[in-house]
Design a protein around this nucleic acid. Sequence first.
DNA 1: GTCCCAGTGGGAAAAAGTGGGAAATCTGCT
DNA 2: AGCAGATTTCCCACTTTTTCCCACTGGGAC
Lengths: 146, 146
Amino acid sequence: MILGQWIGKIDEKSRVSFPKRFREDFGEKLIVTKGLDRNLIIVSVTSWESLLEGTVGQSFLSSDVRAMQRFLLGNASFVELDEKGRFLLPSYLKEHASLSTDVVFAGLHRFVEVWDVKLWEEEQSALREKLPSVATRLAEKERNDE
Amino acid sequence: MILGQWIGKIDEKSRVSFPKRFREDFGEKLIVTKGLDRNLIIVSVTSWESLLEGTVGQSFLSSDVRAMQRFLLGNASFVELDEKGRFLLPSYLKEHASLSTDVVFAGLHRFVEVWDVKLWEEEQSALREKLPSVATRLAEKERNDE
DNA sequence: GTCCCAGTGGGAAAAAGTGGGAAATCTGCT
DNA sequence: AGCAGATTTCCCACTTTTTCCCACTGGGAC
């Protein structure tokens, strides 16, 4: 179970330390990709592959398949940690998440999210406002699914 | 698994660097052809035939198959990389994808797409809008296929 | 305090990317 | 056939990026 948060830095060479506590779960090789919000997602190679099942094998004649592939595969990046546990962050990902220097790594069960500190804090305070209604909707959904 | 993106340039002589990270998977000899959108597709010689299965591998008695053959095969160009990993881009392909100087290479599992940077960004933001519905349709399709 | 380790920063060599000259080849025209 | 202009190929030079180290810092344990 991956959880907790950690604050790290991006240096001039776009290197980022991957939190030590997550390293044993993920290994030395990671997949970094765009998140659905202004953030990044890091997953291990093994869970990445299971995520892709059923989408990438299909024919490129379908425009839906092409769209999904462009999002899932085109935006992803395969990175390896150096001996100090750092990896190189591609610039297109850095831009997508508006990362400057200080970033937050948040463990979310099966994957890790990366946020710019500032945006993370904004998200947190926004969360405080909307959490009650979110909880209500989730509860309704759960009831309907049964 | 081919994934990730990279930005390259087309120089005055219509030469383009093929990203290093893709080179080991593709080798020195590539096939470049028109994509179904405003883009190009690059395939390795070895996976070219398997990629075509299900598209042009079918009977030539079907006029749809013939049409697709004309598009994919008729527009294909066989190129070789120079010692610096560059290849020459035929002008009819350059025009098809509206390429100017900066292009994006996106790795999509078995092949690479080439886009003009501007068009790629537009595609990305369009993707953002339609991704939820795309995901739903793909999930439904998968359920029906079972 | 000292030791140790995770994290951070940076130098320098190597590799990759970019640009362009000049020879070689091709093309069309007289 | 022979020439002129354009295109392609081969090669070299410069710039930027990446990679591989090594050194420093700061906090926690002893």
